[in-house]
């Protein structure tokens, strides 16, 4: 071996190794190694709750457990919805790491206990937090994790699950929507939001809460396309079958991260998310001291758009509100 040739070979070797590393990193950054796009799925929502005259219960009081039970009972009871053997997805709002901005753990506990009594096959509590917040950490610091795990229920940080599916919507802006597969697999979706103001959606209640089953890119895309219409479009396929609103402490004036907290001391429930969001929004605006709370609620774009898409009823004359008080 003479020095010249061998050195050339050495440099070649070195260059080859560097090129291999470079190619691999380039491929990695271009996403060559990630799985390809999947087919677009279809999902049907249960039509039976599409009532002509939806029931909304508004239970006031301080005993959260009793209030939740009463609110669900007033709209026909959990048995009407949850048959033994069904898979339940509970979607609380745990978008932030501040306790006042998320569904309170007590309300969530009461909801889980009620559903457990109906003996479903599986209960999953799942969430994907607002972008920039770590869902698992949110679960921990807000006390959600302790409550859910204490009850022996599976708690899922959707951001850690990589399985994403595309689902066809019957909305106006969104032809199809990417969601975490786990949400798509559930038979019954139960939305458990906290009643809050929202800087862009005006209010965030049961329908806006469903954005927590979207992966990060899709959430961003909603803002690019037009948030209000996208919320309505999403609810054409992921319409909560039951929604229970935590209005024990209400975030008013501004939101969804920080706002003025006002005691609301109420739980609202309904099987019609549009009717529920309308009544809950009215309740919120009334707490804010708005002179025309019902009209303001009727003008919340995504509630109006959802009604136009036939997701639910926003005609106050057709909504039956059951107001109760638990001492």
């Amino acid at each position: 071996m003479s020095g010249g040739i061998s050195r050339r070979r050495f440099v070649k070797l070195l260059g080859g190794a560097a090129a291999a590393i470079g190619l691999a990193s380039l491929g990695y950054s271009l996403g060559w190694f990630s799985a390809g796009e999947r087919a677009v799925l279809e999902r049907s929502i249960s039509g039976e709750s599409n009532l002509e005259r939806p029931l909304v219960s508004l239970v006031k009081g301080r005993d959260v457990n009793a209030m939740v039970r009463r609110a669900i009972k007033a709209i026909g009871g959990i048995e009407a919805l949850v048959s033994p053997g069904s898979r339940i997805l509970i979607k609380p709002n745990v978008g932030f790491n501040r306790p006042e901005a998320v569904t309170s753990p007590e309300v969530l506990r009461a909801v889980i206990e009620v559903i457990k009594d109906a003996d479903p096959k599986e209960i999953i509590v799942a969430e994907s937090a607002v972008r920039g917040y770590n869902t698992s950490n949110n679960f921990g610091v807000t006390g959600i994790a302790d409550v859910v795990r204490g009850l022996g229920i599976r708690l899922v940080d959707l951001d850690k699950s990589s399985e994403i599916v595309k689902v066809k919507t019957s909305g106006k802006l969104l032809g199809e929507v990417s969601v975490f597969k786990l949400a798509c697999d559930a038979d019954v979706i139960i939305s458990v939001p906290r009643l809050k103001r929202h800087s862009q959606a005006i209010v965030t209640i049961s329908m806006k809460n469903m954005m927590g089953i979207l992966p990060s890119d899709q959430k961003g895309m909603f803002h690019v396309l037009g948030l209000q219409q996208c919320i309505a479009d999403l609810n054409t396929v992921f319409r909560p079958d039951l929604a229970i609103v935590d209005a024990t402490e209400v975030m008013t004036v501004s939101g969804p991260g920080m706002g003025r907290m006002v005691p609301g001391e109420a739980i609202l429930a309904s099987r019609d998310p549009v009717a529920l969001d309308l009544i809950a929004a009215e309740y919120l605006f009334r707490l804010e001291g708005n002179e025309n709370p019902l009209e303001t609620a009727l003008n919340v774009p995504h509630i109006k758009l959802a009604a136009e898409l036939g997701i639910g009823i926003n005609d106050p004359s057709r909504i039956r509100v059951v107001e109760e008080r638990v001492s």
């Binding site: 440099v11 070195l14 990695y28 950054s29």
Partner: peptide, 23 residues
């Protein structure tokens, strides 16, 4: 490379250093 932030220029720079030293 472990953090997925490797760019082509850094690799070229590394090759340059190796070439200067060896050649």
């Amino acid at each position: 490379a472990l953090t997925g932030s490797l760019d082509l220029w850094s690799i070229l720079w590394g090759i340059t250093i190796f070439a200067v030293i060896t050649l």
